[in-house]
Design a protein around this nucleic acid. Structure first.
Length: 435
RNA sequence: CGGGGUGUAGCUCAGUAUGGUUAGAGUACCUGGUUUGGGACCAGGGGGCCGAAGGUUCGAACCCUUUCACCCCGACCA
């Protein structure tokens, strides 16, 4: 992409109502803009990031044997009345009427719809297990949406549902999904923890949350400094009474607090804040029983499906990545999430030699299928650098003054350090770095 | 859903206590020129139903009423 032809409306100032770094930088960097309370548009850069995350989620799930589907976003209210959740979810569900005055709901989650889909289509234990998922828009009419993409009303979520003939098999799938989720978050370059959690309104036993560690997280965790143990304080009896007190503490205060107990591995435990980006539940037969979704077992007996459900907040991940990876200048995208991995920047576009080399490198990287953007705008050097840092391209090849000595710089966004390399070796050096 | 706050140019905000020609600044944008290694400089220019509706008044961004939107604190939150 040529920067001169792109639609990336960056801004020097953030809207006054943005408080979180991710919120500020995503808006300033031209990734998203606000449409209404808890409603956001994804601009070209934001859309690329969202699609990159979606692609990774899909790839790992497909690899683990899950099947992607897409359910309708608008669902008849009757679906929710049968399970009793029309009442239970209350005002969180946005209700609308069609021209015939029939009532509908914008899907906040899809247990019911998925059970109905499978019911009477999968009828034998021979067809189990089955793990269906979708990556689709959800709507929850939150009482108080806030923090940009972190807590929107409309958001993109991957929700998966698995069906089994036995509890053992359901637990096997649950564990497989835990491993799959770890792969996804690891690929995204995130520092995260898997913690035991309350199962909330969804119900059922056995649930684990996946938290990205970041100062601005809404949950307080206890994590081990050595191994990857983590727990949400809400699930630990001895902290239950102290939650309010702990939540009031600033992040710095919280980090200083000592925990008497040691981790089972022997190392020290610390408090950390986390952003919930994934949640997996063992549901059992809660929904299959309520909706009479049964299959025939080996003995020809009718039984309700054993179920589990798995969620990942895809659009929330866009924000979580930035909460964990930013500095005072802007975003620092990880390699797998960056809208463009390499930014080829010509310092002075009026300099023919600089432009010629820029064109050449840009073409070469495109041919090599590298996600590359070519900053061929007429701005001055300082402006372009600020812009590149705000957007957060992992690497910028600076073609400028030193070209006279046959050199270009490769700027690393994370360290903010540049190395000078020979023009002839710039390509091979960048290919080595982005591996 | 309780409490508080804010709506004026794309963005950040002044102006509203005490009503008075043509509504301002910075930034962004357009044109020309000078610049070209850290958000440059000079000159000129475009852009506003002052959130909306009603009212008071000779006259309303400003006063009154209603309404909508957004934000913050709390409660809630797979």
């Amino acid at each position: 992409m040529r920067r001169s032809r792109a639609f990336i409306p960056t801004a020097k100032e953030a809207p006054s109502d943005a408080t979180l770094p991710s919120h500020k930088f995503l808006i300033r960097g031209g990734f998203i803009n606000q449409q209404g309370a808890g409603l956001y548009n994804f601009l070209p850069l934001g859309k690329i990031v969202l699609e990159k995350i979606r692609a990774i989620v899909k790839e790992e799930l497909d690899c683990a044997g899950c099947l992607e589907v897409q359910l309708s976003f608008v669902t008849p209210i009757s679906l929710w009345e049968r399970s009793g959740r029309s009442e239970a979810m209350g005002k969180e569900m946005l209700r609308i009427r069609d021209r015939h005055q029939n009532e509908f709901v914008l899907s906040p989650t899809n247990e019911e719809a998925m059970v109905e889909l499978v019911k009477n289509r999968v009828t034998s234990y021979k067809d189990l297990p089955l793990n269906l998922y979708q990556i689709n828009t959800k709507f929850r009419d939150e009482a108080r949406p806030r923090y940009g993409l972190m807590r929107g009303r409309e958001f993109l979520m991957k929700d998966g549902y698995s069906f089994h003939s036995s509890t053992e098999d359901m637990v096997r799938e649950f564990n497989l999904m835990e491993e799959t989720y770890k792969k996804i978050f690891t690929r995204l370059g995130l520092d995260f923890r898997v913690v035991a959690a309350d199962s909330g309104a969804i119900g059922g036993d056995g649930s684990k949350e996946f938290h990205v560690l970041a100062d601005s997280g809404e949950d307080t965790l206890i994590v081990c400094e050595a191994c990857n143990y983590g727990a949400n304080i809400e699930t630990i009896d001895e902290f239950k009474d102290k939650i309010d007190e702990l939540n009031e503490k600033s992040y710095e205060e919280l980090l200083k607090l000592k925990i008497d107990q040691k981790c089972s591995c022997g190392a020290n435990l610390h408090f950390k804040k986390g952003i919930e980006v994934g949640h997996i539940f063992q549901l059992g037969t809660k929904y299959s029983q309520a909706l009479e979704a049964n299959f025939s077992d080996e003995n020809g007996r009718s039984k309700p499906f054993e179920m589990a459900t798995f969620g990942i907040g895809v659009s929330r991940l866009v924000a979580a990545i930035i909460e964990q990876n930013h500095d005072e200048s802007g975003c620092i995208w990880t390699k797998e999430s960056a809208p463009y991995l390499v930014n080829v920047m010509v310092s002075n576009v009026k300099d023919e030699a600089q432009m010629a080399l820029g064109d050449e490198l840009y073409a070469k990287l495109r041919t090599a299928k590298v996600d590359v953007i070519f900053d061929d705008t007429k701005e001055r050097f300082g402006f372009k650098m600020k812009d590149a840092e705000l957007i957060g391209f992992p690497y910028t090849i600076i073609i400028g003054k030193e070209l006279e000595s046959g050199l270009v710089q490769i700027f690393d966004r994370k360290t903010k350090e540049s190395i000078s390399v020979d023009t002839n070796s710039a390509y091979s050096k960048i290919m080595e770095l982005i591996k």
